[in-house]
Design a protein around this nucleic acid. Structure first.
Lengths: 216, 216
DNA sequence: GCAAATTAATGATTTATTCAAG
DNA sequence: CTTGAATAAATCATTAATTTGC
């Protein structure tokens, strides 16, 4: 059961007519109505885009790119896995954390694919886990250790510099303090187009994907 | 039950980046024409992971070496394709760029997995390309367009600052209208096939984030 | 004219920030 | 409040342009 349900990733439900077109991912821009105009051979490009890309996806395995679109999820297991974890974010078990910290402590910072795969495999013994979790864990851990250190250094320096400690944990918001200018074209539920994968895998299956469930 | 036929990732014996001191953007160092450099695969590291989880070396930089995309069994004339794209990093053809720019111009900024897949498929007609190339292209293009604009704005501001002091804020254009909710993108299944490291000389590569699949 | 040497672009990674689930 | 997840900014590294000496 691949999810493979394509065709509904237009992020703005308010413009239904723009659906099948892949040429406008963020059509929510009011001032942007024309696909293209400048650039040389715009007509050709336009046509190509419209006809080719937006064309119904046929076999996704017909050699498009050297190796993209592989498959890596065990469709059948998906339900099982999800069932046992609720399909939410990864919640490391103590054992997993222990191992990860041991690796980090040992010097590992950004494991490569093979390492990720192995680690994932090993940690999988203690609970559900995916390669991306491992990847993210290292990224976050590294970043946060750094933050911690930076902060303590800063504090130490401040303490030694100013006899008047002003314990203000206030984070320096930098210029980003503006309003939330995050881009948010919440595209509806994103579906994956994952294929299946065999059990005897050696291929790591990692890759982002994640339906944006922004429903509040 | 699907075996990806990830076959051969050929590493062109070009010039790997074995040595890399940090902070060396400007190359004023005549170290071109590297004869050949071995790989510094992490067989040992991997092993360590699998066995004694705690002894990865200190390699400071991730060692992702340039690799060539492996070709599916369906790959026809690799040589021809390779001719156009070389064995290292993706080098977009004019047609590909045209299409990408058209899409960008059409408003696309961060294509989701399905879109990436389609685009990749389409662009694949003009030369070798992988999903990650598409993803990266959009990321880079977006970032660089932003830089460009910011720079010009800054210049304009500086120019207009003299005649008329205008406490203007830096907050400006963001071509995306919309609410402020974070959007979650994801990748579909791209994936990397890690080759066996038996020969000991396979530099595999994986690229950054690769969450798996996540259904909700 | 041509390559080596530089420089400009830009593909690919890593790091810093931010968001939000639990 | 902690931290998994995700994106944007910064950085690195390689390729194409371009310049330069012969």
């Amino acid at each position: 059961m691949k999810v493979h349900a394509l065709g509904s990733w237009e992020q703005v439900p308010s413009s239904p007519s723009t659906s099948s077109s892949l040429s406008s991912s963020s059509a929510n821009d009011p001032k942007r109505l024309r696909p293209l105009a400048p650039r040389l051979t715009s007509a050709a490009v336009s046509t190509a885009v419209a006809t080719e890309i937006s064309a119904p996806p046929k076999l996704r395995k017909s050699f498009s790119s050297p190796m993209t679109a592989k498959c890596a999820s065990i469709d059948l297991d998906v339900s099982l896995i999800q069932m046992q974890s609720g399909g939410t974010r990864w919640n490391p078990t103590p054992e997993q954390i222990k191992l990860l910290e041991a690796l980090y402590q040992g010097g590992m910072r950004t494991p490569n694919p093979v390492q990720i795969e192995r680690i994932t495999m090993e940690l999988g013994k203690y609970g559900r886990i995916e390669g991306k979790n491992v990847f993210y864990w290292f990224q976050n851990h590294k970043a946060r250790e750094r933050q911690k250190q930076k902060r303590s250094e800063l504090l130490a320096l401040a303490a030694s510099a100013a006899p008047l400690p002003h314990p203000k944990k206030e984070e320096i918001k930098e210029f980003h303090g503006g309003s939330c200018k995050r881009k948010c074209r919440s595209w509806g539920s994103l579906e994956l187009a994952v294929e299946e994968e065999g059990p005897g895998d050696r291929t790591l299956e990692l890759f982002p994907l994640h339906p944006e469930r922004k429903q509040m």
